[in-house]
Design a protein around this nucleic acid. Structure first.
Lengths: 127, 127
DNA sequence: ATATGTGCAAACTGTTTGCACACGA
DNA sequence: TCGTGTGCAAACAGTTTGCACATAT
């Protein structure tokens, strides 16, 4: 049976109130501000759980730590080489990439992830 | 000054003679068959070095370990949920995705990675 | 009451690094 | 010879897990 917990509720609230695609440590730090005894293990457990349930998104940008996104409608990201941020791209998700991929490949496509590298607006301005 | 080494030469030869997008451990195992004293550290050092030099490609498929590709012309991959393999997709690389992304975003795009998930031809047949 | 979730700390995996020695130019 | 690369082992980062206790239903 499914049980709620204050920890998971808070985690979700924190994740949904930011657009910064944070990693587990960032979430952990924000959690501690409001719930000083929460443990890192709990953060990891709930992040994976929510991701498996499809309530949040787990992003794999080529950096060391996984990042998470409270916004689950499919969209694309850019990993900034300047500041390391991960930002949402304002471009339409292209569902027929899946069909295109399935066409000649003999593969059964379930989805795709498209990640751009380059510089975010603020880092593009400076050098 | 740049120096060759038997280890790096062998590594590159191994990587170029497979299409399986292996991780460091797999390469390490193959290396040991021909060079029993090679160390894992050397494998990692040379993989990162060759990737930085643009001689090989480092792939980030959402699995734990990084994978490497001896083929460096840009192309897309599928990560198979069945067997865990990473396979090349027989579809054209789309350079103007970069332009499209740059259009409204204010970002400076350098490139993109497109990763499909689903099942490879052999796993698609069975369940 | 009882199953599910938590906190803590230890374990684990993939990767990096410091150091003394080996090797290529 | 002299600087770069290697082997080894220890260190590291991110993540997972076992266990006793706490909590939601």
């Amino acid at each position: 049976m499914q049980k709620r917990s204050r920890q998971r509720d808070l985690l979700l609230e924190i994740l949904r109130s930011t657009t910064c695609h944070p990693d587990a440590d960032w979430v952990f730090a924000r959690m501690r501000e409001q719930m000083p005894n929460v443990s890192l293990g709990t953060v990891y457990r709930n992040l994976s759980r929510l991701a498996e349930e499809g309530i949040i998104l787990k992003l794999d940008v080529g950096q060391n730590a996984d990042r998470f996104d409270g916004c689950i409608n499919p969209h694309y990201h850019l990993a900034c080489k300047g500041c390391g941020a991960v930002v949402d791209m304002p471009m339409a998700y292209t569902p027929n990439l899946n069909a295109a991929a399935e066409a000649e490949s003999g593969c059964e496509i379930e989805g795709h992830a498209l990640l751009f590298y380059g510089k975010c607006p603020s880092c593009a301005g400076s050098l």
